[in-house]
Design a protein around this nucleic acid. Structure first.
Lengths: 132, 132
DNA sequence: TAACAGTATGTAATAATATAACATTTACAA
DNA sequence: TTGTAAATGTTATATTATTACATACTGTTA
């Protein structure tokens, strides 16, 4: 059961922008794009991003300092995320592979640590860039 | 066969500092610590860090913007890295688990992408913090 | 409806992280 | 000894993110 979050005005503006872009967006590029809608300051963007990440509507691509809309309704509130990143064209997509997510969610070792969350980033060349 | 890299003066100073610290260090904290050794500017630090990452002597913890000495001679030149991060005390350690690394190195899906590299970060509470 | 609590917003300033551009020097193989 | 790649030094600046403080909105409950 996915909890329904009613997005606030700024959250909605920013989520819609990222979602429509279809790819990762950086915070200051988001800021630039929403200035015409009245969002003027970095903090307004970061606050909305924080909330959207918290509720799982977007994810942060840590190695790129960028944010992408969640494409996978089953990755509940961003506790288990995996991405593939093309090092040539910087295309990013979310991997939804149930074997992989099961394997990682159940992973444990002898460190005594209880893992509650993970983020995985794969790098390589996408189909297009490979054939160039 | 591990290639031997002779570290330059700055690279050695910075690697030794990170290695001795035993944990992740941030770039500007490194800078502060090596100023007495004549390294005065951020760029000198970042250049050494870039090189050390490239040759696999250190890894970047992406979610923390921090750098840690490689504790695992088998993770050749940082192509396959996994870390566990305590969200309470921020302790970080490198996971060396051959099953995990085999599983991830061999991972492929139907995206047509060839993965040549990955970075995985697990989050949770370490033994100490769990028992508080 | 009034009072309250929690969430969201607005604004300015600043902190923290990282790179560009350019000049010079060192290491070392041809 | 000369050519070349790597490393260094320095200044300035770009990029990413947070602190601090004031105000407003939303929904609950007394």
């Amino acid at each position: 059961m996915q909890k329904i979050h009613n997005l606030s005005k700024n959250q909605k503006i920013i989520f819609d922008l990222i979602d429509k872009s279809g790819g990762p967006m950086k915070a200051y590029s988001i800021l630039f794009n929403v200035q015409k809608k009245g969002i003027k300051a970095p903090l307004q963007v970061y606050r909305a991003l924080d909330k959207l990440v918290e509720i799982g509507k977007i994810h942060k691509i840590e190695s790129r300092n960028a944010f992408i809309a969640c494409q996978n309704s089953s990755c509940q509130v961003s506790k288990a995320t995996a991405f593939s990143i093309c090092e040539s064209c910087e295309n990013v997509s979310e991997i939804s592979n149930s074997k992989l997510s099961k394997y990682l969610s159940n992973f444990s070792d002898n460190s005594g640590m209880k893992y509650s969350k993970y983020n995985l980033e794969f790098f390589g060349l996408c189909k297009k860039c490979k054939s160039k």
